[in-house]
């Protein structure tokens, strides 16, 4: 009896591993092809000859106008994503703290407007937001990419729910000890929110890092392009240079995977709460 059960278990793990391999196969394919000899790229499921030529091409600048465009674009992506995510986190914590822990007149109204806006199809805002950015002179600048994405309704919503679950007694006790709201926020509420903060940070950063449409619309000069936009334009409709295309894809994908894996444990803890 124990024997058959063990056998069944083996089989289950085998299926799980096989399915996982199929799911992450595109990543494996990407990495292998980024190192593959150029005449083997996209010709073999598993290339047999490997080279660093694709990465040399990428780091050396390829055929673009400005020197080292890929490294430049990588830093653009980093500045835009980090700036944007930082602002989204700060604004979300502030607003959510007000909505969850500060009783004030108009709180419910603000809460309702946020909920309404969350379900409002955002596509209607695309063109006029572009015009707003153009009018204030932020077209083709970092601020133009960061500011319209400096606040996330979803992050506010998540933080508000989490903060509401923090028992009022903690806050009351701290207030009796003479703590200000800012102190309460930094000393009590935020330390209790580490795992949810990890979840929100990862989702926001990931989404910002892989944004295409907005960054594409709001920039025009070569030295403002983010990595995702450069990748899209360089290897767009006409193809060519498939090896470097995979190398550039690795350059774009690896940081986000590494960040995610570094926080994976906290991420899982946080997801437990969000899915309740």
């Amino acid at each position: 009896m124990a024997g058959t059960k063990k056998k069944g278990l083996w089989f289950r793990y085998l299926i799980a591993v096989a399915f996982l391999l199929v799911m992450i196969f595109p990543y494996i394919y990407m990495v292998l092809n980024s190192f593959a000899d150029w005449d083997q790229v996209d010709r073999k499921l598993i290339p047999t000859h490997y080279t660093l030529k694709s990465y040399q091409w990428l780091l050396g600048g390829g055929e673009a106008v400005i020197p080292r465009p890929w490294i430049h674009a990588f830093f653009n992506s980093f500045i835009v994503s980090a700036g944007s995510t930082f602002l989204m986190m700060v604004t979300a914590v502030m607003v959510a703290y007000a909505l969850a822990k500060i009783p004030f007149k108009g709180r419910n109204t603000i809460n309702n407007i946020i909920l309404f806006q969350m379900f409002f199809p955002a596509i209607i805002l695309l063109i006029p937001t572009f015009l707003v950015i153009q009018k204030v002179g932020m077209y083709d600048s970092y601020w133009g990419m960061i500011l319209p994405k400096a606040l996330s309704l979803w992050a506010i919503f998540m933080y508000t729910n989490f903060f509401k679950a923090i028992p009022e007694t903690f806050i009351e006790a701290a207030k009796l000890d003479g703590a200000s709201n800012l102190q309460i926020m930094f000393k009590i509420v935020l330390p209790m929110s580490k795992s949810i903060t990890t979840v929100i940070f990862l989702f926001l950063f990931m989404e910002r890092w892989t944004e295409l449409l907005w960054d594409m619309i709001v920039t025009k000069s070569d030295n403002m392009l983010t990595l995702n936009v450069l990748l899209s334009q360089m290897f767009g409709p006409y193809g060519g240079y498939p090896g470097p295309m995979y190398a550039a894809s690795v350059l774009l994908t690896m940081p986000i995977i590494l960040i995610f894996l570094a926080f994976a444990k906290k991420f899982q803890e946080g997801m437990q709460f969000t899915l309740k």
């Binding site: 992450i24 990543y27 990931m206 892989t210 498939p242 994908t253």
Partner: peptide
């Protein structure tokens, strides 16, 4: 395993499209 299965969520749409374009190109395996 859940973390492993979550990894595709991190892919940029541009990257996954380019990979699929490669996999489906005329001379692809």
């Amino acid at each position: 395993f859940l973390i492993g299965f979550f990894l595709p969520y991190l892919a940029s749409g541009v990257v996954s499209s380019l990979i699929v374009k490669g996999i489906l190109s005329y001379n692809s395996p």
